[in-house]
Design a protein around this nucleic acid. Sequence first.
DNA 1: TCCGTAAAATGAATCAAGTTCAATTTTGCC
DNA 2: GGCAAAATTGAACTTGATTCATTTTACGGA
Lengths: 248, 248
Amino acid sequence: MSTQERRRRERETREQLFIQTAQDLIRREGLLHLQMSRLAEACDYATGTLYQHFSSKEDLLMAIATEDLKRRATAFEPIPGLPATSRERMLAVVLTDIDFISSHPDHFQLLQYVSTEVIWASASLERRQALVQAGAPISEVVSRVVADAIHAADLVGIPSLRPVEIAAGFWCLNTGMHTLAHTHGLLEAYAVRDPYALLIHHGHALLNGLGWQPLVDTGNTRAVIDEAERIRALLVRSANPESPAVTS
Amino acid sequence: MSTQERRRRERETREQLFIQTAQDLIRREGLLHLQMSRLAEACDYATGTLYQHFSSKEDLLMAIATEDLKRRATAFEPIPGLPATSRERMLAVVLTDIDFISSHPDHFQLLQYVSTEVIWASASLERRQALVQAGAPISEVVSRVVADAIHAADLVGIPSLRPVEIAAGFWCLNTGMHTLAHTHGLLEAYAVRDPYALLIHHGHALLNGLGWQPLVDTGNTRAVIDEAERIRALLVRSANPESPAVTS
DNA sequence: TCCGTAAAATGAATCAAGTTCAATTTTGCC
DNA sequence: GGCAAAATTGAACTTGATTCATTTTACGGA
């Protein structure tokens, strides 16, 4: 019976090896040049062994995207418990996403690619479900932040809109800006200089427009930047709970 | 000399035939199943002839996306001249985009696909430039709407934000909602019922948050819907300038 | 009208890469 | 140590995009 278990662990370990090596290859040579045979070789396995884990190349790509998405979701977890106002927590959502995507530039592009009809349809049902599931915790966290704000009366609930639909607005703004930032030719065409500073600005505008208290003066660029840095520090602290005493 | 010109026209006609037939095939059988040889056959040409026009399959896809994008851009043209308030014109931008994407469901997915690193890198420089160029008029129109609003004092300009950067916020919201609406599994995961009603709502919230006058009470769902219908009617009228007298 | 040349079109052959599977090797157990 | 089952291997297969030697067509001058 322990044999069974060890086998499963070894299999899992090897799958991680394939996924991580594939990520390395993609980082190094680009998604375009990823080849199944070369990936297998890089891992010292035969090509066929790859297909013990992934039903197709698209399946593999989706597995990579899913791994990253799980890590991305983890970054959101501490937010509902953050010692801050509900509005600051919502800003924390935006900042967390910005920072994750900024430090994982390949992730967003891969996610865009596998979300494409062509790739999506070529992957197995299990992988597709796993990808959707990996993203679900994020919308749950953000919805909770919205629900908490309504509960705290920082935000007046509108009967026709559930928390998840408010959350979706920020999802759109964020995803849209990632798209703008990562799609070739777009930043240049729009002549947008600093997409993520812009995202924070529009995020505040949307928060203000929803009447999310306390309102922020978006014209005061200094204050907006300072607040973002303050929330970032809070996020860093919550990510390393055992860090030494805070210094001012 | 007329021979030269006729040749060029014939060539252009044939390219359009290829592009339109390819669109038909995609609509009928999906992007996944588009094959160069079958497209050529469907047009009664040899496979090699396709490559007189498109350097690769990706090149062809980009050409299709570009054609659609040109048509999409055309839909925005009348907006700056619309007899309406600046805020209504901005709403017209959002509605025009919603309606175009709704009636061209394949367009957005194809555009997403060709914007992908993998496909982008496989297309020729000319096609990539053409795609970017085809989208530029849209951002120009929207920027003009923003600039006009500032000029009319409906919107207080912020020194650090140029009109195009305000426009980009709406681009993000729109593109994000299209993504949410068209990406498999997302609508279900977010449990969003009517993405485009939601987009209109958040669009108003963003407008309010930017202080774009006159502010709209987003809680008044009836009024929001009615206004959208009114603007849609205005758009239809401006698209068919020779239509018979308006009936109330 | 006919001819020769240049341009265009053709589609079978080539190529690349993902996928399969018969043969081989390894593993776990008696 | 030996055997059956499971896992691994990598060469062969498959699919479909791309090429290019050959054929056909178009054009302009005699």
